[in-house]
Design a protein around this nucleic acid. Sequence first.
RNA 1: GACGCCGUAGCGUAGCGGCCGAACGUGCCGGGCUUUCAUCCCGGAGAUCGCGGAUUCGAAUCCCGUCGGCGUCACCA
Length: 550
Amino acid sequence: MSDSTIRARFAPSPTGHLHVGGARSALFNFLYCRRHGGKFVLRIEDTDIERNIAGAEQKILDDLRWLGIDWDEGPDVGGPGAPYMQSECLDQYHAARDKLLADGHAYYAFETADELNAMREQAQAESGGFKYPRPDPLPTAADAEKARAEGRPVVVRFKTPAEDVSIHDEILGDVTLAAGELDDFVIVKANGWPTYHLAVVVDDARMQVSHVLRAQEHLMNTPKHVLLQRALGVAMPKYAHLPLVFNIDGSKMSKRDKHKAVRQGVKDAIKQNTLTKERVCEITGADAKAVERWIKKKADTELSMEQVVTLAGEIGVDMPEIDVFDFRRSGYMPEALVNFIALIGWSPGGDREKLTLDEMIEAFSLERIGKTAGRFDREKLLAMNLDWCSELPTDRLLVQFKDWAALNDCHLGKLDDDTLSAVIDACRGFKIFPDIVTKAGILFEPDENVVYDDKAVKKNLAKNDGAGFATLEKLRDALAGVDDWSVDHLDAVVKDLVKATGSKMGDVAQPLRVAVAGRPVSPGIGQTLVFLGKDKTLYRIGRCLELRGA
RNA sequence: GACGCCGUAGCGUAGCGGCCGAACGUGCCGGGCUUUCAUCCCGGAGAUCGCGGAUUCGAAUCCCGUCGGCGUCACCA
């Protein structure tokens, strides 16, 4: 059941980390190839030299690998379709351009951006849609030369034929774009670089891409690509446009959501006088004008993503996870994230939901991809992550927890593997990794970091004339004599005291828990004490007992 | 505005002409287990399958219309 002629690709632009939407596109291409024994190709679309971000390519590769997605050909592994970086293919795009020009399928144009905008506005006011008016006669190479000499921008436009374009989409069915809907779009920019359309067609042909699975936002680009393929005389791959992915409120899931969240946080903080605009400038290193514009207007570009991230950290605002890396840093398991992402727009059928990557490969088919736009439900993801975390073996969790701890500078990451494994197991039932820190983190911090929660002290220790404190004293005496500092034995010690005093487990365990953790939450009491060790346990109890007078 | 896509409980999906008086998961509400939190277990509410019409003995499922949502209309990809 393998078809070696199947070749699909994922072609991200190096503008930052991998967006979850992009991750899903990558995943579907990957699944399709693996299912049918095809080749999965990774290509970096870096033709927009202005927007390329240094290091982004590596980030995307890392994000994909973290998810468990690998590829047969790509910029890092090479392959017969090389190069896999569009920036290394300039001569091929130029060859395509020259062929198109020579065959009368393309022509030069010289308008400036301002002129084009003016034409658009006018068209908007008069009739509605703007279509680039094809000049007659078409400019010649000599005209282009002259324009260049005059300092005008020279682009190459495709001479879109006046014919209906029908494509058969593997998901959507037949989609037809009527003749005249498309205008003569730019295929080579003034700086000599190809636009996305030309580059995609040239590269897909060279790499012999047989299937293009991409998000539906590209649907209207496809006729352009098909026309270009015909003009160039290259094969047309099969297309499958994936349903879009939205936020739970129906808005588009974009990096702007991060700006939005932080902007709101900044506004609130300023209103509450806990932050000033000057301080924002300090934190971000941006000038006052930029900050002002960023806050007031929707000019996200005034601040870079790095600046926004620092700002969020500084003022304590949570940003929504948008990129795969955001989820990694937030403490999700890759197994859960890929599983969740796969189910947006695809289903294995029946009531099956939880699948490993291998099971997804086994079950994957284009027919089972839906047409309905999906929503990214974070609560469902959370539940799914919990599910995966409760079933995955500890050693697997350990690897990812250490990764997460390193990214977050978490002190638990410094524990030895055995201890950390025990901590993870003691906290089973957690949704995401930070929950582990919430529950057990304090046990591995310096004793001085223990802050006693007023409510907990009142409820578990001070109430009833300090009944809890009294119990605590007995506990201290009992524990001081314990030699076998093990979970079982310590649990027994606590239970014995419960029996001896005729009280309930909560009357004994809770005061102890609050004494050593400062809060009424920790792993099982025996386990909690083992993590702490005898000395620290007794020390913390003593320290807590000092609260009695206060 | 033009063109295109979509429309099943809050959300994600299953079902794709009779098994549907619509299923599963999540979320919500209630109960139980438990030394805490979380987990776990049990129960419940929640959908006239966007709306209208047509075809049919029979429609969530096929057809037409309508409304709504979204996407694309860049020298970004």
